[in-house]
Each structure stands twice: as structure tokens, then as C-alpha cells.
Design a protein around this nucleic acid. Structure first.
Length: 823
RNA sequence: GCCGAAGUGGCGGAACGGCAGACGCAUUCGCCUCAAAAGCGAACGGUUAACAGCCAUGUGGGUUCGAGUCCCACCUUCGGUACCA
């Protein structure tokens, strides 16, 4: 072929051919016909910002290599793609430049789809989903109603960021240093009536099932376990002195009840208003206002000075009748436990700090040996010592068994009950925004809240809306949308104007891919049963908790609804790193991007693919380097010239026994490369695949230089081309076709390894003295232990180091190393 | 703050508890050229006359015949922290 490697000439042609021949479209297999193993792989779907940059290219190329590899392994591979198209950015853009999200979104999708094609990423576009299309969100609404019918969707109070000046709800992202990013007003937290999904009902199952997810990174499982945050303890009821009222606290340490010297309610606790003494009301109100200006992260910071105020009310400790003051403090949250705690400063660090700051008494339940004094102890006593003042439990050790005994006693006395509490909260899905799936509920003055009948779906987003900063959600101002009729009585009714969190859309899209055209149901059970669970899910670590938790919740709920047969969606999970440019994550909003279009036009898709795979281990973040990308392009040039002529893909494959040493070696290298590339793809070490290619190309060039284009060269080149195909699909296909390959290289079988070429004839033994390298010996493979040790001890450098001393022992690691140990 | 990670040459990185720095980038030198680019070849952690030796994988300890790798503490950076997705 003897011409220049010009990727811009060959790449578009192959992309068109592959699409035309639909080599990556996957029809549903005929019923019962499961002759091939299925392999369902998906990368988390992107938000359609309008431009793919090299950060995207890295994410999707990692997945594309996996897709092409499994396809060559003869599996039935499903690799779909879609668009997570609802959400805040489109709405913000609409406010800023007046372009309607319903116009912008399809334009962005069309642009990005073209860019996807230029990357050489193969998806089954016939299964494309767009979460913002009525054909999709209709089913998101359908599933909402399903969860509602199951009792998993309910209305309740939830805190939101509120800008008092704009009179609008803000996303956390829109709150900068406690102020509204638009107008600079201090943001407060307001309690609004909103929709929730009951994720807590699945807390225990989501926790238990993590144990079975051994295809997930351990760190993600750990993060999820901690997020769910199971803790065992008790609920204890406290009466309020001088009133009929009472309240309940959750504690993991009911055994320290005898040391409770004050109570703390969250400032937002419903009881605060009724119990606050008249003379303390001004102070309490001021504190509540101050607390409302803080984020949860600020409130929970343990290094921050404790704050709080006394309400003037007292609670009665059920175990000893003691009257203790009730305070409010921001370190207690309404969202965890009951929003109220008993404070035991002697045995809890935060309570200890609080008591010291406000001069509250500290009472020891347990004491150490030697004993400490409550007034002088430097910190709380945690899990050590023996009970000195625990009513009937005095004398017991500070241990889990004591806690269990106390819980049983509390239950017998009617003071409280054992309780398992989770840190996980119910999922607040309401958004006071326009660009999301409307919640399919109406409110009727006569019939109250009514779910819409399924045949009235979708509730379509009206297009004629006014976007302006501030004020309520645009939907609430659209009379024609809001006013409707009640499905129960046909009387006038009002629609819910909240839309759903975009995480709802992305909690089930991977099931829609299995049956994307269904117009009767979200998906057909048999189709989902065939493809699900995903064999491989790929996405950023930033989704390790929220998205993955929500998707797991949805899967379990739909399993309980009988809609699917699996209760975990993702068998294997891979989390990839991000691409940085000038020290910041490459992103359009920051303006630091290398667009895929520009790169491909300059150096070609294959060079981009090779570089993004090579730049760092796929799990790691990595800084973009233009020079590095040029190196990748140079590598492909070398490949082109190495395989440029005289190779016959159809020649008979040489047997090891018929070849000379150099030939056996080069074919051996090629076989090892096949093995290496396969195992590195399976364990997601894509960067070392590329270095293995480079290493091999160097060896093959040397071989050709010295031995010429022999049958062994031919065979080694053939194997290399096949294993290069997943990473650099265009150049591999082009060379394959020029050399007379039959059919697309991507539909060839992955080469099998010929073990006759893998046997080494020699081994290199590293010789150490006391763990330090002293020599290296080349010995015949298979030499026995005694002979190897003898050779090692005989080595000059070893003798010199020993200098006459007798070794105390000699260790041998077969085929690798000898360590001579000497005093 | 809390939860989870990561720190190895000038740079990106490699290394089943067993040869630290594979592979590449940058740099320098050489070949080719009238010249340049491209291409090809060589050198390239520090110390050193040396390819001998010693030092070297964020810092300080520990386990081990042997630690970049395992354990403890600390420092720095990154991700998440429930309305960015």
C-alpha cells in the first residue's frame, strides 16, 4: 500500500460502512434462541450540553473497547446510548439567552450524535432514548404512579434553599457562600410540602444486597454502606414537665440514659413553638433564623464552635424522673432520627463540648480506672469502663450486651423500644422547575389529591411558558396547564406543578433500552428479563452514591411490583476518572475543552482513542496533553508502515516446531500480546494495553529489520491487527481490508492463544542478598530448586557480598528469585 | 467537618509482597537534508571517573528474608455530602 497514513481519509468511510451494515445493532433474539451469551454494557448517559470534548471521548472510548472486544468474543452485545436531557442547565440557559429548552435540547442532541459517530464509538442507535421526550417521560410518569399505588410515593415537608428576594427555590449549586448566585441575598431554608419516594423502606435490602455486588469497586460499596448508615439503638419517650406533651428521641446508647443532663431539639422541630417559654421566645426565634441560614454541611461540622439556646422547658427522664432542660441547637437535624436527642455529655463528644460551653452538668454513667471527675475530665468517656450510676445496670461493663439488656428493660417498663435507624433519607423528588417530567397528580376541591389514570399520560409540558428569573416555577403560571378536570368527579381541579428530579429519569432508562419502542408499557417483562441485569455499567465515581442508589431503589421497587425478575441492576460496575485541562475538569461551562470535532479533524479518531486510553489508568483523573496525543498519532503511523505490504492474512499458520528461535520468539510475543490485551480489557487496564501494543510494534519492527517478512512475521502481524481492532478500529479495519481480509475485522473471532508458543526456554533468576539485588542469572527453564540455589550461591557477586559468612537461609521463589539471608 | 480515594523521574505513567521507573511525552546528541520538518538511531532519577557502590516511590513509624505494594499516624490533592448531573 506504500501510501501515507491519513486518518481523515479513511475514518469517515468506515464509520459510514459500519452504520450502513449495522454491525452494532442488536435485534432481540428469537424466543428460546439463546445460542450466544448476552452481554449488556452501557455507559452512563450524557447530559446534552451540545459538545463532546475529549473528556467524553475518554469515557465512551473505554466502553467502546469493551463493546468491540466482547463482540469479537462472539457474544450478543447490547450497547445503547441516550440523553439525560432534563434538568437545570437548559432552564438556566433559557433564562439567560431566551432559547427554549425544547428547541435547544434536540439541536444539542443532533450535534452530539454526529460527534459520537466521529469518535468511532458504536452504539445501537435504534434504541436511543431521550428522557425529555414525551415518549419517554410518559413512562417516567407511569412509574411514578406505580410507586404511588405501591405506597412508595407520598407528600411531606422538606427543606429547600429559598431566596427571599427572588422568591424562588434554589439548587445547592446556585447558593454561593450562603448567598443567592443571582442577587446575592442570604439564602434561608424553608419547609415546603413536596413529593418523596420512600427509599428508606428499602434501606435494609439495599444494604444487604451490597454484599452480593462483588463486581463493584469495594470503595463504592463502602461509600454506599456508610451512606445508608444503619445504626441500632432505641427510641425513648420523654414527657414534658408541666404539660401533657411528650417527644421521642433516638439513641444508640440507651445504656447512658442515666447520664442525660439536657435534651436538644432541632431548631425546626415542631415542638419548639409550643414549649418555648414566653420570656425566651425572642431568643429562640433569633436562633432559628440564624440556623436557617446555614447549610447542613456547616451545621454538622464538628470543628465548629457549638451554638444553641435554652427553650425554658424541661423534660422528664423516664428512667429516674430527673427534670432536664430542653435546648435547641443546629447540630441536631430534623432529617435524622426523630429530630431530637438526649444529651449525655459524659459519654458523647459533641454533647460534652456543648455542656462545657454552656455550663451544663456532666454526669458519669460509666467510669474508668482510675476514676475521673466529671468537672475536670478532659473529654467524654467512650466505650470503656464500668457502669457506676446506671440504675439496675450499675456494675456492668460499657459493652454491646449491656445496651441490649437496657433495651429489653426499657421495653418491659414501657419507656421505649429497640429501633434500627438509618442515615439514609427518603428521596425528595419534587422540583419547583419547568424542565422536568410533570408529576401526574391533580388536586380537586371535592375529591382531594388524585393520581391521573394511566390513559391520560403523558402529562405534556406546555411549550408556551415565560422564563424569567425569580418568582415561582414557570409551570405554575401557565393557566392552561394548571387548570384541568378531576379524573374522579370531572369537576374543576388543579394540576401539580412540581416536576420530578432528573435522577428519577435516569433511574430506569437502562430498562427502557431493552424495549425502547414499547407504546403500551415502560417495557416488556420478557425483554428486560433477557437483557438485565447489565453485565457492565460504566460511569464516573461522582455517581457512586446518588444515581447508583436511586437506580438500585427503582430496580427493587419494580421487582416488588412484579415487573422484572432481578433486584440488582448492575452486575459489574466500573468507575472512570475525569480529564483535566489547565488544572480543572474539562467542561463546557468552564470553557476549557478540546472538542472532539477539532481533535478528530487534526489527528483523527484513532489517535484520540489511543491517547485517551493511554493517558492514565481508566480509574484515574488525568491532565490533557497535546504533545501526548501527537505521540499516539505517531504510533499509528509506525503501525501503518510496519504492516504496509506483503502480509497474507490467509496463509497457513506456522507451527512452533517448524520455526527458528527468532521466529518462535516473535510469534510467542504476539500470543502473549493476545493474552495480555484480553485480560487487560477485562480488568479495565486499558492504558497498559496501549503500552503492550507499542512494545510489540517495537519488537516486530526489529524482527522485520533482522529477519525480513517471514511467515512468522506474517502470523505475528495478523494477531496484532486483530487485537488492535477494539482500540483503533479504523486503522485496523483499513489495513485488514487492504490485506484482503474477509468481512469487517470487528466481526472476526478474537484469536485464540497457541500455547506451544508460550513456553519459555530460559528463565531469569534474580539473586538477592538480604533482599538487595546482587546478580541476575539466566538458567534453563525448569531447572530444579537445589540446582538454582547452588548456581546463585556460586555467583561471583554473591560470594563477594557474603565475604566468607555462612548464609542462615536461602529462599527460592520458583522461576523468579533467590534470596540469600545472612546475619 | 464527615464518608471514599490518590500521592513513584522534568511530565503522563509501569511494577501477582520479589530486578523501581516498562511504555510514551519532553529534552539533548547523532544520521538523513542545501536547510528545515518528518522519519530513523542513541542518551536520559540523584550522587559518581564508573555500567562499582550508595541514595531514591508525600512525611514519620511498624510488619516481613524482602515493602511503591500490607498495617498505624500525619500532610497534601481529588470525588461525594442528598436541588449540577
Amino acid at each position: 500500500m506504500r501510501d501515507k497514513y491519513i486518518p481523515q481519509d479513511i475514518e469517515p468511510q468506515w464509520q459510514a460502512r459500519w452504520a450502513e451494515q449495522r454491525i452494532y445493532n442488536v435485534p432481540q433474539p428469537a424466543a428460546g434462541g439463546q445460542e450466544e451469551r448476552k452481554f449488556y454494557v452501557a455507559s452512563m448517559l450524557p447530559y446534552p450540553s451540545g459538545d463532546l470534548h475529549m473528556g467524553h471521548m475518554r469515557n465512551y472510548t473505554i466502553g467502546d473497547v469493551v463493546v468491540r472486544y466482547h463482540r469479537m468474543k462472539g457474544e450478543r452485545v447490547l450497547s445503547p446510548m441516550g440523553w439525560d436531557a432534563f434538568g437545570l442547565p437548559a432552564e438556566n440557559a433559557a433564562i439567560k439567552d431566551g432559547i427554549h429548552p425544547a428547541t435547544r435540547t434536540p439541536n444539542n442532541v443532533a450535534a452530539m450524535k454526529q460527534q459520537f459517530a466521529k469518535m468511532g464509538a458504536m452504539f445501537d442507535w435504534e434504541r436511543e432514548v431521550n428522557t425529555s421526550s414525551p415518549e419517554y417521560y410518559r413512562w417516567t410518569q407511569w412509574l411514578f404512579l406505580k410507586l404511588y399505588a405501591m405506597g412508595l410515593a407520598y407528600r411531606g415537608k422538606g427543606l429547600v434553599n429559598w431566596c427571599p428576594k427572588d422568591a424562588t427555590v434554589l439548587a445547592n449549586e446556585q447558593v454561593v457562600e450562603g448567598k443567592c448566585e443571582r442577587c446575592g441575598t442570604v439564602v434561608v431554608r424553608r419547609n415546603l410540602e413536596q413529593w418523596f419516594f420512600k427509599t428508606t423502606a428499602y434501606a435494609q435490602r439495599m444494604l444487604d444486597d451490597l454484599d452480593g455486588l462483588d463486581g463493584w469497586p469495594e470503595r463504592v460499596r463502602t461509600m454506599q454502606r456508610n451512606w445508608i448508615g444503619r445504626s441500632e439503638g432505641a427510641e425513648v419517650d420523654f414527657a414534658i414537665a408541666g404539660s401533657e406533651g411528650k417527644f421521642t428521641v433516638f439513641t444508640t446508647r440507651p445504656d447512658t440514659l442515666w447520664g442525660a443532663t439536657f435534651m436538644v431539639l432541632a431548631p425546626e422541630h415542631a415542638l419548639v413553638e409550643t414549649i418555648t417559654a414566653p420570656e425566651r421566645q425572642a431568643e429562640v426565634a433569633a436562633y432559628k433564623e440564624q440556623a436557617s441560614k446555614q447549610s447542613e454541611i456547616e451545621r454538622l461540622a464538628t470543628d465548629k464552635e457549638k451554638t444553641g439556646v435554652f427553650t425554658g422547658a424541661y423534660a422528664i427522664n423516664p428512667v429516674n424522673g430527673a427534670q432536664v432542660p430542653i435546648w435547641i441547637a443546629d447540630y441536631v437535624l430534623t432529617t435524622y432520627g426523630t429530630g431530637a436527642i438526649m444529651a449525655v455529655p459524659a459519654h458523647d463528644e459533641r454533647d460534652f463540648e456543648f455542656a462545657r460551653k454552656f455550663g451544663l452538668p456532666i454526669k458519669l454513667v460509666y467510669n474508668t480506672e482510675p476514676p475521673q471527675d466529671a468537672t475536670t475530665m478532659p473529654s467524654a468517656i467512650l466505650h470503656t469502663g464500668v457502669a457506676v450510676a446506671a440504675g439496675p445496670f450499675t456494675g456492668l461493663p460499657d459493652a454491646a450486651e449491656t445496651v441490649s439488656k437496657v433495651i429489653a428493660w426499657l421495653e418491659a417498663q414501657g419507656f421505649g423500644r429497640g429501633k434500627v435507624n438509618f442515615r439514609l433519607r427518603d428521596w425528595l423528588i419534587s422540583r419547583q422547575r419547568y424542565w422536568g417530567a410533570p408529576i401526574p397528580i391533580v388536586y380537586c376541591d371535592h375529591c382531594g389529591m388524585q393520581p391521573l389514570p394511566l390513559n391520560q399520560l403523558p402529562v405534556v409540558l406546555p411549550l408556551d411558558v415565560a422564563f424569567k428569573p425569580g418568582g415561582e416555577s414557570p409551570l405554575a403560571r401557565v393557566e392552561s396547564f394548571v387548570n384541568t378536570t378531576c379524573p374522579a368527579c370531572d369537576g374543576p381541579a388543579r394540576r401539580e406543578t412540581d416536576t420530578m428530579d432528573t435522577f428519577v429519569d435516569s433511574s430506569w432508562y437502562f430498562m427502557r433500552y431493552c424495549d425502547p419502542q414499547n407504546i403500551e408499557l415502560p417495557f416488556d417483562k420478557a425483554m428486560v428479563d433477557y437483557w438485565m441485569p447489565l453485565d457492565q455499567y460504566i460511569g464516573g465515581v461522582e455517581h457512586a452514591i446518588l444515581h447508583l442508589m436511586y437506580a438500585r431503589f427503582f430496580t427493587k421497587a419494580l421487582y416488588d411490583a412484579g415487573m422484572i425478575s432481578i433486584s440488582e441492576p448492575f452486575t459489574k460496575l466500573f468507575t472512570q476518572g475525569m480529564v483535566y485541562l489547565n488544572g480543572a475538569k474539562m467542561s463546557k461551562s468552564k470553557g476549557n475543552v478540546v472538542p472532539v470535532d477539532d481533535f478528530v479533524a487534526r489527528l483523527g479518531a484513532d489517535a484520540g482513542r489511543i491517547y485517551v486510553l493511554f493517558m492514565a489508568p481508566p480509574t484515574d483523573d488525568s491532565e490533557w496533553s497535546d504533545a501526548g496525543a501527537i505521540g499516539a498519532s505517531r504510533f499509528l503511523g509506525r503501525v501503518w508502515h510496519l504492516l504496509d505490504e506483503g502480509i497474507d492474512l490467509h496463509a497457513a499458520r506456522p507451527a512452533a516446531a517448524d520455526l527458528d528461535k527468532a521466529a518462535r520468539e516473535i510469534v510467542g510475543h504476539a500470543n502473549r500480546l493476545v493474552e495480555r490485551v484480553g485480560s487487560d480489557i477485562e480488568r479495565f487496564h486499558h492504558n497498559t494495553i496501549i503500552s503492550a501494543y507499542m512494545d510489540f510494534v517495537n519488537k516486530l519492527s526489529d524482527y522485520r529489520e533482522q529477519q525480513g517478512q517471514t511467515a512468522a512475521f506474517n502470523e505475528a502481524a495478523r494477531l496484532f491487527l486483530l487485537v488492535l481492532a477494539p482500540a483503533a478500529p479504523h486503522i485496523a479495519e483499513e489495513i485488514w481490508q487492504r490485506l484482503g481480509g474477509k468481512g469487517s475485522i470487528h466481526l472476526q473471532a478474537w484469536p485464540s492463544v497457541d500455547s506451544a508458543f508460550l513456553q519459555a526456554e530460559e528463565m531469569t533468576i534474580v539473586v538477592q542478598v538480604n533482599g538487595k539485588l546482587r546478580d541476575r542469572l539466566t538458567l534453563p527453564a525448569g531447572m530444579d530448586e537445589a540446582a538454582v540455589k547452588e548456581a546463585a550461591l556460586a555467583a561471583d557477586k554473591v560470594a563477594a557480598t557474603l565475604n566468607g559468612r555462612q548464609p542462615t537461609s536461602v529462599l527460592y521463589v520458583p522461576g523468579r528469585l533467590v534470596n540469600v539471608v545472612v546475619k
